[in-house]
Design a protein around this nucleic acid. Structure first.
Lengths: 180, 180
DNA sequence: GTCTATACTAGGATAGAC
DNA sequence: GTCTATCCTAGTATAGAC
């Protein structure tokens, strides 16, 4: 298991249990590595693990969510592609959101700025597509925020109601939410 | 400090830190009571604390969110009143949501049914108001779900971006979201 | 780079005095 | 109903062998 696979496993743990819900012992079980091996890879302990996960997420958001929005193409098509990627990334809403897991509780302070920057960049990219489609500056920003709210909200509500049709419906409707 | 004040304090802790993020020691500090006193009030420990909090929340949702929607009055006015109550309850988005805090992680299993029932009742009540206003059955349900999604999502995003204007905007727009 | 062993702290829970 | 004292487990972290 190389570092990248390790970080993927950590992502799964944090998004499912939240920062405080994951212990080093849990990580050890999930990865098959002893505690000392984990501290070899992450001398800073759990906090460093979460920071590495956030770095990974930041790259993934830029590469998979934002870059396609900035490419050439019709606004509608680009947003549709993004919606599909989101549905896959969250496995139809079953996976939970790392933003949620890492902003809860007092331990979240070291992560806040990273998360904020990452989400701001994503909102900006969605707003740019709306503007490209003729939406005013102010309204574009508002709709992009609403899109993110819909995604995060749908993840929470789907999980709470154990009804994943809801997440599907919301992602499908994302292009309409931003353009109309 | 009587039981009701105790439960209110617990609510604050769980919504801010999540279930796994709250220790009995934290509760002891926050309430000024020793650990043994806490186990006197909640023999079932932390799980019982969370269950009592959920009972409290269930009543509050029924009384403050649902009952006004079922009373006589114009749909618009009733939803406006609900939005105002929500904004107060979450203190403009600064307070975080107990649903979020108690559905994260493996420890959440004992709470799931309670939470689902509570949210379902709330959704149904919002959908009924939409139908009263002439919206079709299917669309009314969808919009009510969207309203809940917007509330939960706005709480997560406001916290992540540390921008509470967003929560305010979303609550203000709730009546429009459900009726138009 | 991984392991075993170990130290230490924090967390959950109980006993028994007042 | 609250306290002090205590127990045990789980959690974080490190040392040192291989």
């Amino acid at each position: 298991m190389d570092k990248s696979a390790l970080v993927s496993e950590l992502l799964e743990l944090f998004r499912q249990h939240g920062y405080e819900g994951v212990s080093i012992g849990d990580v050890s079980k999930a990865t098959g590595l002893g505690k000392s091996s984990l501290y070899h890879h992450f001398p800073g302990g759990k906090e460093e693990m979460a920071l590495e996960v956030l770095g990974h997420i930041d790259m993934a958001v830029k590469q998979y969510f934002i870059a396609p929005l900035k490419a050439e193409g019709a606004p509608e098509a680009k947003l549709k592609a993004m919606a599909k990627t989101i549905e896959e990334f969250y496995e139809g809403g079953r996976k939970g959101c790392i933003v949620d897991g890492l902003t809860l509780g007092a331990a979240s302070a070291p992560f806040q700025e990273l998360i904020r920057n990452c989400l701001e960049a994503w909102i900006e990219a969605m707003a740019a597509v709306a503007k490209e489609h003729g939406v005013s500056e102010k309204l574009a920003r508002e709709r992009a925020e609403n899109a993110l709210i819909a995604i995060e909200g749908a993840l929470v509500v789907s999980r709470a109601l154990q009804n994943y049709q809801i997440f599907k419906r919301v992602t499908r409707n994302l292009p309409r939410l931003i353009l109309d």
